[in-house]
Design a binder for these strands. Structure first.
Lengths: 185, 185, 185, 185
DNA sequence: GATGAATGAGGTTTCATTCAT
DNA sequence: CATGAATGAAACCTCATTCAT
């Protein structure tokens, strides 16, 4: 039941937004009552936190696995971007909620999630830095800003990319990787 | 007064979000009453629409000016990215509200704004396409996806870039342009 | 201007009701501003009172004229009913407002209008009473209840009678008079 | 609780009118909170609709029972008028609300109620028509207008008749029936 | 005579949350 | 485990009215 509530909530939050989705909406969509909701979640915020943690923890997990592989930094970067993009197809709604609704977490929860987001960014930054040191990437790059740029490209996809549209997630990832590695000139 | 309300609203919407900012919050911050608000705006949504139009219309205007210049496509692209980034310093809050709160527009208003956003994107796409045709950019690129990527990089900046921090908007624009043109390899 | 406001208000009150019509609605329909309204009327209630008095005073006036004529009571009754019915065509909206919106008058005003309404009813009652005494009408009738019945028949017409429909006001008055005088058996 | 709210609302609506009675007034009179009101009724209009349907459905029901009886049309008419008048004593407030506040129903609801009102009127019309055909009533009458007249007499009673006053409902019904059948001459 | 900016009280409605059962 | 009645704070919005110009 708890999982069901969470899953349905993600879909509703994605569709209408967190503030615009009431507990009533959620329980009605499931055919249960409000009491049931509060049996499993102590508050609406806690549900949102649950969704956030589920998403970011999974992402960090998979990022770590890539990082531990014995492959070049270029390859690590490639796999990481592919990870982010292909996730849209699999966990699209979760991701959208994640990127859009963090503002609705209370101070403490926001702090915790922010920490994990930054950890993800820092890990990405490290790959770039390592790549520069090992001469896989150009010298003189700002690893932190490049990391932000890469995240921008990938995360923005959540706003427009439709996996069931004209282009597959894999193909999109390839294009992005090519762009980031080689530029457009 | 109308301008004052709009300006203060932008700041509050940026800080707390549209849904989380009440009319009460806005008028209290200005020392007026709710009646005054509704004298100038017929609804909260209409205020949001006002903000959206002010932002996107200005942006389209300036994009057009760049597009009409007699300069290379590469230079046009450079200026466009600079435009987007340096805007953060000048109209940061407006931009954040613009990118985050479109969901709160009603169907009709959302349609209108979406149209203008797409126009902006299509214009960017055209620069890339022209650049490819004129061999300024690599052959075989997908202009639409490249456009999305550039918008991702630029728009994401609204989420983290602090113009009064360690790096200037001009410098950031330069870095981004270099990245997009040349890649990281 | 004052007359214009009053006239337009009657139409709007008839269409949407007193409470549902705002001062804004009235002035907008006339292309003037709220200040203008309050220059001519000290309050919304006073406007309603104006409308009420205009209607009932006129009615009482004409009732008196009939009463003073040297004709039979039966003829007086006939003319009175004709007066009420044909009024719908001429002052329909005023009448509708009059019958529906008295509740929105304050205590004092309501008292005054009620007094005049009762005077009208009492006058009608007197005709019936006189008719009974003079053997024009059946003996044993309750003049007060008959008066209420006649008012019911006539006033209810305001709810459904459309003078531009299939039947004229004169014809309707004739039918009603026949009914009241002779019954249906 | 739902029934309690409905009943108290009827009394308040009768006393002060629909627009002039706020949800606050209703819940305060019951010692509950606004939340409770909206737990049982989705809107103020829906409550009004509930009241309307409760009244008209009951009325139609009883009308039908009369209509199916094996009695003369004259007797049917008599019973119908008695039904309307004696109702004032039993459901007076409901009736007053019913006759006065239909304007506050939205388009759809008003349409539905109007349909039922017309059905009641048409049924009454049919009794008159049948009575004419079977020579119980005079030839040459307009059944529709006679129906309107009867409704006027009966419904107007809601505006003045006080069952606890000097005359009983039964007596009033008798007087009305006599008037309608025989006239005043 | 007329304007229009401003008020403030009050209206309907929503909603996260609680709690006895 | 789950229900459903009840809460109460706060949201958006309306509107008659005032008043300096």
């Amino acid at each position: 039941m708890k999982a069901e509530i969470k899953q349905k909530s993600i879909l509703l939050f994605e569709e209408k937004g967190f503030s615009e989705t009431s507990i009533q909406d959620i329980v009605e969509a499931l055919g249960v009552t409000k009491g049931t909701f509060y049996y499993y979640f102590s508050s609406k915020e806690q549900l949102l936190m649950d969704i956030h943690l589920g998403y970011i923890d999974d992402l960090l997990n998979r990022q770590e696995k890539i990082q531990q592989k014995q492959i070049s930094n270029r390859e690590k970067l490639t796999q990481l971007i592919a990870l982010l993009i292909t996730d849209i197809a699999k966990h699209g709604p979760s991701g959208k909620v994640f990127f859009r609704e963090m503002r609705h977490l209370g101070e403490e929860n926001a702090f915790q999630v922010k920490g994990k987001r930054e950890k993800f960014r820092k890990n990405l930054e490290k790959i770039i830095m390592d790549g520069i040191v090992q001469k896989e990437f150009r010298q003189g790059l700002d690893p932190d800003i490049i990391a932000f740029a890469i995240l921008g490209v990938a995360n923005w996809s959540y706003q427009w990319f439709n996996p069931s549209g004209g282009i597959t997630a894999d193909r999109l990832a390839d294009i992005y990787i090519d762009l980031i590695l080689n530029g457009i000139v």
